[in-house]
Computed example of a mutant assay.
Amino acid sequence: MRKLLNTLYVTTPEAYLTKDGENVVIRVKDKDIFRIPVLNIEGIVTFGYMGASPALIKMCAERNVGLCFLSANGQFQGRVSGPIKGNVLLRRIQYRIADDTNKSLEISRLFIAGKIANSRTVIDRFKRDHISSNEQLSLFLSVSDKLKRSKNQALVAESSDALRGIEGEAATTYFSVFNQMIISQCEDFPFSGRNRRPPKDKVNALLSFVYTLLNHEVQSALETVGLDPYVGFLHTDRPGRASLALDMMEELRAYLADRLVLSLINRKQISGKGFVEHGDNGIVMDEDVRKEVLLAWQKRKRETIIHPYLNESVPIGLIPYIQAMLLARFLRNDLDNYPVFLMK
């Protein structure tokens, strides 16, 4: 099993990344403020960075350390990776399946059914642990039933367009009660529905930010096992879009991202005061909130669970890699079906 290494998050806007021997060095105003051996990290994510030296970029590419650049508010800007070293036979299989409408649809059904099932589990857990009034119980039971029907519909969708319609309707249903799962700081974190580009409220800003972190993890995992993250089965090809990463993210959003956002708010780990309106960028978090979210994200990745398919104890941070590995095995016909990740 792959070893879980750290991701280095650089949040200081004036930071410059450079190399010293086998170390990654963060420099601010010509002063070294942090260094870490490159062997101890698997990725670097920067926010509003000033720059990175060619030597540092070369070392990251050679050591397979993903280097991802985000704007100060978490919008994806670019990614640097080394030469493609994946199994060419595996990628050729991936491309052939991506061009086969029926085979692509079979895999896409599993991604979306998994997403809906995990969203339903979030609803059911909240219903079990926090609901006392009959009115609210009735609402959550209704949402859970709708999501169950949507999951069953996804498994038999007759086209990708039909599947996208089912996914969209299920997402609307799920997010219709997301506001009610915020049981602390309710006035500071109102939520009336999912929106993005730009996020119009604090909850959407958090969701978009954590989804960006998840996308980085999934894309790195796919590259590690030899798959092409830019050729997907449900998300259509578009220059610069990691379509397969977006496909695989679907089954992981509720467990790895949505639950983290709810916990940060409900446990008062972040405050509504740490958000500002930023013109065309919508609502963005300040540096303190961003650091708190990143700390919580890293801590969550170190927690362990029993993987539902492998039946082994694994760090949560390895779930994207495990699912990418299982997808690769399925594409090679080593598995009869792709075992989508399902929350328990």
Rank of each mutant, 00 (worst) to 15 (best):
D288L: 06
F47D: 03
R27T: 12
K344G: 13
V24S: 07
V143N: 04
I116N: 05
K103E: 15
S71V: 08
I131Q: 03
N195H: 08
F76Y: 13
C60F: 08
G232M: 10
N87P: 07
K273I: 07
D280G: 00
T173C: 07
V210D: 09
V314Q: 09
F126G: 13
L141P: 00
I41H: 06
I33Y: 03
K273T: 14
V24T: 05
L326E: 04
A162K: 14
L295H: 13
S119T: 06
I107H: 05
I283R: 02
Y309T: 06
L256D: 03
R300K: 14
T304G: 00
V276Y: 14
A55V: 00
R300M: 14
E303W: 05
I116L: 08
K146L: 03
E292Y: 02
D100M: 09
L294E: 12
Q136C: 06
K202D: 02
K19I: 10
A328I: 04
E62I: 11
L331H: 11
P339Y: 05
F47P: 08
V293Y: 04
A205C: 15
I283D: 00
K3E: 11
M248D: 02
R194F: 11
G165V: 09
R267T: 14
I36F: 06
V231A: 02
N134C: 00
